[in-house]
Design a protein around this nucleic acid. Structure first.
Length: 562
RNA sequence: GCGCGAGUAGCUCAGCUGGAUAGAGCGUCGGCCUCCGGAGCCGAAGGUCGUGGGUUCGAAUCCCGCCUCGCGCACCA
């Protein structure tokens, strides 16, 4: 039992002893003011109504009923409107570090997932261009959420869904064609420079296959384009493959890897789109209108019904959300009873639709499936001005640009330090100019400094096990605060995983790094009397382990030296 | 017009699911290097938590109205 559990158990016992109703669970919280102690409980405030007594009186009785030794408390005080503040016994508090050292890399892991499978889908870009900053935010978020869930005992599959079907791909193909033959681009085509790269790469690839010069290959495309479906398909496939390779390289540079790449086109080729349409029709939730087939999504909370198969005049093809539904059915059928989709908020209109489709099928998929993490847009500022991101207009800041300019670790941290619902302003110049006083360097420096203690002392960090340590030596305020931050880590990580909010980890890291610097600045380790040194080495090792674990979840390196 | 999200220090943002005198980074101003790394530390200034009501012992947090900003509202994806 750790210090928190011990305290909670004793407060609960005492509360029941003075008349709290059966099943009462006291709330323990960290007081904002350190002067108020290590823990506080609002038990008396909450009980005031049920007991029909003043909170202050209840607090007094509760403190009197408390067994301080059993609770591990050095001091209890009634404060404010009825808070009870506890100061833990220094030795009992610091002894919690023993468990940290014993668990090492496993410290902080939880098991709420109990080995169950969860699918986390993120990035899922169309292969119509390089990954831009919005994808970068999503990659950082999705990867960190996956890591957090795995850390909480879930069996995580990271998945990337390629929207390689639909009209956008045709638009890409035609844009490449225009660049090959030097035709003008329509407004709704892709204007980016990369399209020129794809075009010239295609020509370079085609010429030797035809056994002609590149100029002749261009002429070949010009002449045959209209009537040669095979050629058009060739260009489409080449462009998609080219851009997928680019995206993969960008993700690799960013340190993000996927377990599964799922192709939208495969849903058509293996008949899943067709079978989903049939299944939906069989449910009676569909109807025909104006030559199109509609799904009555209003039966499931949507504000209007949606077309699922276009009328003949519009091509007669399924709309995009049918493969989306079919895709999520495969997630369910592949055994993922839980699925998390990380998407930009500009796609939030799909949420209701996809869920409605899954509900309409009536195959036992729960209502809230899949869960969505929607993040707001990233605004890029460069040279003091906003860079408008538009694939079609061709103005861009890519993930690769950012990684090259400010480094992988800093980009990851910047994207993760804010909650997803907040819009994010990424000032490229600022990120660059700050590169030496970036929060991520500050955090990594804390880890490097702790590592330095062991390096300089010629002590293996692994040899610090916490055995025969006099924990009472860690009584200085800076030490108590650092100890508490370390011991808070498991519940913080669990909370971040449950809420799917990696930014909490980023915040904890910054706070804890500050405590490390403060402690380091004030207290020496090497060369101190033996009992002091042993205790401080234990603290340094525990802090180092915990920082490394937290950084690892965010995909940020924990360097030994910088 | 409807839906979703956001309005908190000069700037960028936290605020742990309703708690005490609302915090951090950057920026500004002023201090600290015989040291296990100064890529650090200490101090100061800076707030009507968009706004008006409501709920209760207690609200930045929950409910309602209003105001700004972003995103979405296709037989595009």
């Amino acid at each position: 039992m750790n210090a928190e559990e011990r305290l909670r158990a004793e407060v609960t016992r005492a509360a029941l002893a003075i008349g709290a109703p059966e099943g009462f669970e006291p709330v323990l919280e960290r007081p904002r003011e350190h002067a108020h102690g290590d823990w506080a409980t609002t038990a008396a405030l909450v009980l005031a109504k049920a007991l029909r007594r003043k909170p202050a009186d209840i607090s007094r009785d509760l403190v009197a009923a408390l067994d301080a030794t059993a609770a591990g408390v050095a001091e209890s005080a009634v404060a404010g409107p009825g808070f009870i503040n506890f100061r833990l016994d220094a030795a009992r508090l610091a002894a919690g570090l023993h468990g940290v050292l014993a668990q090492g890399r496993a410290f902080g892991r939880g098991n709420t997932g109990a080995g169950r499978a969860v699918n986390v889908e993120f990035v899922s870009a169309n292969p119509t261009g390089p990954l831009h900053v919005g994808h970068g935010r999503q990659a950082a978020l999705g990867d960190a959420i996956s890591a957090l869930l795995a850390h909480s005992g879930w069996k995580v599959t990271r998945e990337f869904y390629y929207n390689d079907g639909g009209g956008q791909i045709e638009r890409l193909r035609d844009s490449v064609h225009a660049r090959i033959v030097g035709a003008p681009l329509a407004d709704d085509q892709y204007h980016g420079e990369y399209v020129k790269d794809v075009a010239s790469a295609f020509v370079t690839d085609l010429a030797p296959r035809l056994g002609v010069s590149e100029a002749e290959a261009v002429e070949h495309v010009r002449r045959r384009w209209r009537d040669d479906a095979g050629l058009r398909d060739d260009v489409r496939r080449f462009a998609v493959a080219y851009l997928r390779a680019e995206q993969d390289a960008d993700l690799k540079a960013f340190g993000v890897a996927f377990d599964v790449y799922y192709l939208e086109s495969s849903l058509y080729s293996d008949g899943k789109v067709a079978s989903t349409i049939e299944a939906l029709k069989a449910t009676g939730h569909t109807f025909e209108l104006d030559g199109a087939t509609w799904l009555r999504t209003t039966d499931f909370g949507d504000d209007k019904d949606r077309v699922m198969v276009r009328s003949a005049g519009k091509g007669g093809e399924p709309t995009y959300f049918v493969p989306d539904v079919a895709y999520h059915v495969t997630k369910w059928e592949r055994g993922f009873t839980r699925a998390v989709d990380v998407q930009g908020a500009d796609h939030h209109s799909t949420v209701t639709r996809v869920r409605a489709g899954l509900q309409a099928l009536g195959i036992g998929i729960p209502q809230g499936y899949p869960e969505y993490v929607l993040h707001q847009m990233v605004t890029v500022v460069r040279g003091g001005e906003e860079v408008k991101i538009s694939k079609r207009a061709g103005s861009y800041v890519t993930v690769r640009d950012l990684v090259d300019e400010v480094g992988r670790d800093a980009v990851r941290y910047f994207f993760l330090m804010r909650k997803g619902e907040s819009q994010l302003v990424f000032d490229v110049d600022l990120a660059r100019s700050q590169s030496e006083e970036n929060p991520v360097y500050y955090i990594q420096m804390a880890h490097a400094r702790l590592s330095g203690i062991f390096r300089v002392g010629g002590i293996s960090a692994e040899s610090v096990t916490g055995e025969s340590v006099d924990w009472g030596q860690l009584g200085a305020p800076e030490e108590r605060e650092l100890v508490k931050a370390i011991l808070d880590w498991p519940s913080l990580a669990a909370g971040a995983a449950e809420a799917l909010e990696p930014h909490r980890v980023a915040g904890w890291l910054l706070d804890t790094a500050r405590l490390v610097h403060l402690w380091y600045h004030k207290h020496h380790v090497l060369g101190e009397p033996e009992p002091v040194m042993r205790a401080r080495l234990a603290l340094a090792s525990a802090a180092r382990i915990t920082l490394a674990n937290a950084l690892g979840l965010l995909g940020i390196a924990a360097p030994e030296r910088m």
